[in-house]
Computed example of a mutant assay.
Amino acid sequence: MKSTIRDVARMANVSISTVSRVLNNPDLVAKDKREKILEAIEQLNYTPNALARGLIHKRTQTLGVIIPDISNLFYAEVIRGMEDSAHESGNNLIICNTVNDQARRLASVKVLSEKQIDGIVITSEPIYPDSYELFRQLNIPIVLAATHSLEYEIPSVRVNDEQAAYDATEYLIRKGHKRIGMISGSTLDPISGLPRIQGFMRALRTHGLEAAPEIRIEYANYHFEESYEAMKKLYAKFPELTAVFASSDERALGAISYLHENRIQVPEQVSVIGFDNTRMAGMSYPKLTTVAQPLYQMGFQAVRKLDQLINGKQLDELRTYMSHWIEERHSVRDININ
């Protein structure tokens, strides 16, 4: 049976409070008593309960992470960065998967609060008024990763999605493409849907191309199957297109799969560029050119920022925008070259 602090106190013939002081402020205990207690701890193989120690220090060294869909490969690298950052700062992570459900998201926050976590990182989702009110009531430090809130003063780490989409579209235009379509998330998604659509449309207008969303854009969630169907619909209404900007890598792979199955060569006939630079981007055929986000660094910095908040340190900036870039592979053809 596992030893308790009471067993240690009995063996060392001291009070429980004295054992607790040795565990948390050993310099406050006389050397002879301290040595007796440490010897008892070693003999009993006693391990202090993390929650009990957390109650003493008002810290549990545990952070919550809320993710909308853990099956999305986007989060693999983000979580790896979070985990490394947490390890560096002496914290542990509890990951909650909300399956894009608002009620489940709020329930996860309440569960994390009951477990006395020190702070929460929320990924990819907007902050609604009911969520913000709950955070305020629970008084839990919050940092946003791959999302932000302009309405509330919540620290965040992300790329500029609108500018990244602009750069992806302009990249295609500079490669000679004018008949460009897009596979996008919903216009109702204020995080990665609408901003990327706005960047796409701005690039078309800047370069004097007709911006007709009803022709150029087809909508789908980020899953492969829906993206496949979106590419089918896009090609049916816009068969003269020579390039597609897909606003996630999984959407891009759905598009490539449809084109391949219908003997439309990529990139010889239709070029495809994705968004995110997940591991799958380098596994596809052809290998996917994509807008790269610094996924690992995003997760790492979000947890670092949260740890600073918890420890009462001044943040360098409230909203951190990380750099993006175009990762060139083989799925985009330069049609300026004869």
Rank of each mutant, 00 (worst) to 15 (best):
S257I: 00
H260K: 12
I256V: 11
S248Y: 03
E268D: 11
G274H: 01
A255I: 04
F245M: 04
V272Q: 03
I273E: 03
E261F: 11
Y258V: 00
R251E: 01
V266E: 04
E268G: 05
N262I: 12
V272N: 08
Y235K: 12
Y235A: 12
D276R: 06
S271Y: 07
L234F: 02
E229W: 06
A243H: 08
A252F: 11
R251Q: 12
G254R: 04
Y228N: 07
M231I: 03
A230E: 01
E240K: 07
Y228S: 11
F275N: 05
L253M: 15
A236Y: 09
Y235D: 04
E226S: 13
F238C: 02
Y228W: 15
I273D: 00
N262L: 10
I256D: 02
A252T: 15
A236T: 09
V270S: 02
V272R: 06
N262P: 10
S257P: 00
S248R: 04
S271G: 08
F245D: 08
V244E: 05
Q265F: 07
L259R: 00
R251Y: 01
E240W: 11
F238A: 09
F245S: 06
P267E: 05
I264A: 05
K233R: 10
E250L: 14
S271K: 12
F238K: 01
E268S: 09
V266Y: 12
F238S: 02
S248G: 05
I256W: 06
A246P: 10
N262Y: 13
N262C: 15
Q265E: 13
G254Y: 06
A236Q: 11
K237R: 15
Y228M: 09
P239V: 13
M231P: 01
Y235M: 15
F275P: 07
F245N: 09
V266K: 10
A230N: 02
E229N: 09
A255W: 06
K233P: 02
F275L: 08
Y228G: 06
H260G: 08
E240N: 08
S248F: 06
I256S: 04
R263C: 10
L253V: 06
M231V: 02
A252R: 13
S247R: 07
A230V: 00
I273S: 00
A243E: 06
V270F: 05
D249K: 00
L234Q: 01
K237A: 09
E268F: 05
K237T: 10
G254F: 07
E226A: 14
